[in-house]
């Protein structure tokens, strides 16, 4: 259910972007998903394939998921470590005073798209 909600929001964000940028077709969507974001990639892909056919601009698109590693910072000793391996307790000094630096993300990194004017150049678009 959680994945379905995210896919619905993603499709809506892309529909709006397509309208703004005069995009006629999206070929691929690359998402960066944090290791501890709680998103199950298989379920996510299933939900994507189910919903994309309801959005004309997304119908032929491919979803590419990239995993971002989770890193935790220890406030006690100032070192970082792999979150998935060690969890909440710092493996360097044993302190529980730690917090997640990265690994919680779900970001649209980039899309491949065809526009009305047919330009091929790469560009960066910022969504506020």
């Amino acid at each position: 259910m959680h994945e379905m909600g995210i896919v619905l929001h993603l499709a809506k964000t892309l529909d709006e972007l397509a309208e703004e940028q005069h995009i006629t077709k999206i070929g691929s969507v690359t998402l960066q998903v944090g290791e501890v974001s709680g998103i199950m990639t298989e379920l996510f892909t299933d939900a994507w394939n189910y919903f994309k056919v309801r959005h004309p601009v997304l119908t032929e698109s491919e979803l590419i998921l990239e995993t971002l590693p989770a890193v935790t910072y220890c406030q006690n000793c100032g070192k970082t470590y792999e979150t998935v391996k060690y969890g909440k307790i710092c493996p360097h000094c044993g302190s529980p005073e730690t917090y997640l630096l990265s690994g919680n993300e779900c970001i649209i990194k980039q899309i491949e798209a065809e526009t009305e004017d047919g330009t091929e150049s790469e560009e960066t678009v910022t969504i506020e």
């Binding site: 032929e60 779900c106 649209i108 990194k109 491949e112």
Partner: peptide
């Protein structure tokens, strides 16, 4: 197939939240 077609697509870097539409 699709491969050739894709060459004419442009890459748009977004770095946007999946929920950008909701945030707005």
């Amino acid at each position: 197939g699709g491969r050739l077609e894709k060459q004419f697509m442009k890459v748009i870097e977004l770095k946007a939240s999946v929920t950008a539409s909701n945030d707005r």
